[in-house]
């Protein structure tokens, strides 16, 4: 078994675009759930909008890549408004069901043949990153050292992704440590109390929904920049994985989602390589290596249960500042 090889490939995920994308989406979920108490179970939908908005903007409307990216983020704003105006008045678990259903509706709309011309239906969209890569200032070639060795194209995706993530994290950190964030946390605790103090609770919740949704769309954007866009990526499980990453790090923290995503992906990559390798050695009770690759998902589920029950504040959360108020 090539243990060093596994560690090497695992380390590569520390800077992978998918890790950055998860971190952005988990940060958005932290704004939603950790700070505003909104149970958004439709993060995959926001991410899909970011990715599809970007790809469709380029392919169907011929926009420059940065404007196409704004189309994706704008789509997330509109989705948040459509979702929020009627549902933010509903009780928490209703919001969860509405958001999960809305995200699934979006996915089915991307899957259907009716809009095949724009969405590519089951095939998804590809070959739209040309212009984005033309803006790449790095000369073609391979850079870095193992395990962080990659093409100029991938480095460009990473650099753009990390810049987006850094700006987003700084903005969220500023927001939640401001009086605005104080009101948001107050709403999480008891929105009637905040209302009785003269704050427009609905506006704050809507702002939080939009900000978190745009962060999710940024995650989808980074994913789209690094590979193809396919509705199969934006399934309900993606939302659940991002929840796991968020809760792992700590929902009511700014840096928890980042570290949570990092741990999530490093562990995913490590286990996803380790178990098949063990299976090939016949060390896993005769499981095939394909079967063994499923074990990591089982572990995600079990981990989610254990975190929520035994360490709901996450790794970095303050024990006193638990987010599970209700």
């Amino acid at each position: 078994m090539d243990f060093l090889g596994i560690l090497n490939s695992t380390a590569g995920f520390i800077l992978a675009p998918v890790t950055i994308a998860y971190a952005l989406a988990a940060l958005g979920l932290a704004v939603h759930f950790g700070f505003a108490g909104l149970l958004n179970m439709g993060m995959a939908g926001f991410m899909a909008l970011g990715a599809y908005g970007y790809a469709i903007g380029i392919l169907s409307f011929g926009l420059p890549w940065y404007l196409a990216a704004l189309v994706g983020l704008g789509a997330a704003v509109i989705f948040a408004l459509i979702l929020g105006i009627p549902t933010l008045r509903l009780r928490g678990d209703y919001l969860a069901i509405v958001t999960i259903a809305s995200a699934e509706i979006l996915r089915l709309l991307f899957l259907t043949k009716v809009f095949d011309e724009y969405t590519g239906s089951a095939d998804g969209l590809f070959s739209y990153n040309g212009e984005f890569q033309e803006s790449n200032p790095i000369p073609a070639g391979t850079y870095g050292f193992p395990p962080f060795e990659d093409t100029a194209a991938m480095w460009w995706v990473r650099i753009v992704g990390i810049i987006i993530l850094a700006v987003a994290t700084f903005a969220v950190w500023r927001l939640v440590n401001s009086p605005w964030g104080r009101v948001l946390k107050g709403i999480r605790e008891d929105e009637d109390a905040i209302r009785s103090l003269g704050k427009n609770v609905f506006t704050y919740k809507m702002q939080a929904l939009i900000i978190g949704g745009v962060l999710g769309a940024m995650g989808g954007l980074v994913l789209a920049m690094s590979s193809n866009v396919n509705q199969g990526q934006y399934v309900t499980s993606l939302t659940f994985f991002i929840w796991t990453a968020l809760l792992l790090g700590g929902a009511a923290t700014v840096f928890g989602p980042l570290v949570g995503s990092l741990i999530f992906w490093v562990l995913q990559a490590f286990l996803g390589l380790l178990f098949p390798a063990l299976a090939e050695q016949g060390l896993l009770f005769g499981l095939s290596s394909i079967q063994a690759a499923q074990i990591k998902f089982i572990i995600v589920g079990v981990a989610l249960v254990l975190i929520v029950v035994f360490r709901p504040q996450g790794i970095f959360g303050n024990k006193k500042e638990l987010t599970f108020v209700r």
């Binding site: 104080r182 009101v183 946390k185 107050g186 605790e189 009637d192 109390a193 009785s196 103090l197």
Partner: peptide, 17 residues
């Protein structure tokens, strides 16, 4: 409706319009 997971000071500051 004291906001339990906010500090006493943050609770107070929230009152200011």
């Amino acid at each position: 409706k004291a906001l339990g997971l906010l500090t006493v000071m943050d609770n107070m500051k929230l009152g200011n319009t």
